[in-house]
Design a protein around this nucleic acid. Sequence first.
RNA 1: GUGGGCGUAGCUCAGCUGGUUAGAGCGCCAGGUUGUGGCCCUGGAGGUCGAGGGUUCGAAGCCCUUCGCUCACCCCA
Length: 426
Amino acid sequence: MLVKAITGFQDILPDRAARFARLEKTARDVFARYAYREIRVPEMEYTELFARGIGQTTDIVEKEMFTLQDSKGRAMSLRPEGTAGVVRAFIENGLATQDPQARLFYMGAMFRHEKPQKGRFRQFHQIGAEAFGSEDALLDAEVIAMLMDILREADVPGLRLEINSIGDDDSRGRFRKALVEYFEKHRDRLCKDCLRRLDTNPMRLLDCKVESCIGIVRSAPTILPFLNDDCAAHFDSVQNYLRAFGVEFFVNERIVRGLDYYTRTAFEVTTDRLGAQNAVAGGGRYDGLVESLGGPKVPGIGFAIGMERVVELMAERDEDAAQTASIMLVPMDENARRVCVRLAAAIRARGASCLVGVDGRSVKAQMKKADRAGARFALVIGEKELEEKRVDVKDMGENRLAPDGITPEDLAEMFAGAMAESGSAS
RNA sequence: GUGGGCGUAGCUCAGCUGGUUAGAGCGCCAGGUUGUGGCCCUGGAGGUCGAGGGUUCGAAGCCCUUCGCUCACCCCA
């Protein structure tokens, strides 16, 4: 019986891996332009970090973490998101004082024990960014602009950016209270999920898709009027800077994030092409997180991109094609194989890719391989070539991997060199 | 965790109300072309029909159980 992959964990085969790599490269390019530097943090942390950071009563912490115990009985969890670990590292390594305005990015695997469906896996990958040390609305707008740059340059079509402000503790506290009061009055008409939410996370009611609830939600209080002057001015300012950055957005007062650490600016990028899991990126400001994890009072803002969801949407590009070698060497016997090995080394030393046929297969089979590999040139090397000390370089045609800077004449010359070397070695 | 749909070759899928050696296309391998790819033709390898049990003279097809995948709820990237 074949041992299969764990439910919700998937293999990313070469064709799709090429897209992942392209997305990563695009992100790295954009991050560099915004002066962000990479940070790599562990994929497992003490469970307590996530409980304190993300929030004890969030779904993620309550029921979605992969948790195990070390030999001393201390609980550790595979990271369900990236921010908590980055903030921990930020504090623990003294960046909070040495480089309080650090701008960091990360990419890697996250783990949540949810039931898999389209666009949702138990191991998935995120690209994220965190900017510390400033409450300036300019930074909020810049972080969002950077996110949109990545998605645009990755060729992701049909996106919608929605932003909201969920206020600070003070504003949100008053809003939450008003919300509970309002929904209590309509208690008898709420779905049972909403009744539960009323106790655990009242703001989530705003998100309910049950028809009877939608009606009630429609006339529920909204967050913006509850914002205090500071938060309202900040949100205003974020919008103005976004316009200055030329980023199109929609204000959606229903955006509620599922992680407790968010404050003020919250945003989501969605698509209508992915089914139910329509969020491709999300993020927001977390001005109290560093402090609540034991660091100094340093504000922050960040986002995370769901790589699987973005890759699903990315337009195809030629560079993703399964082309692997620009030059194919086709040896016909053992002597030719030795020459080919030397020739291959010389070609690779010049920075071009090449493939040597193995298993002594027929010339036809090896040429077929050359075709599949996308090779531009093929060299068939047998008795005749070794005797005459010359080789014909076959041009496989246009639209193939170009062997940068290596011409057929170079190859012929390199062949002679490889022969001489091989001769003197024997 | 709850519900719907689906499990037949590496992939995409046929397989009539249960009936003989389970098929196709793509892919892979070989040959047609004594040493040259793509197109075409021919052939080949590859399946415990997800697993276990039951009904039956006979099960890929019916029944039960179980596992897996998938979509949706929930939640989120």
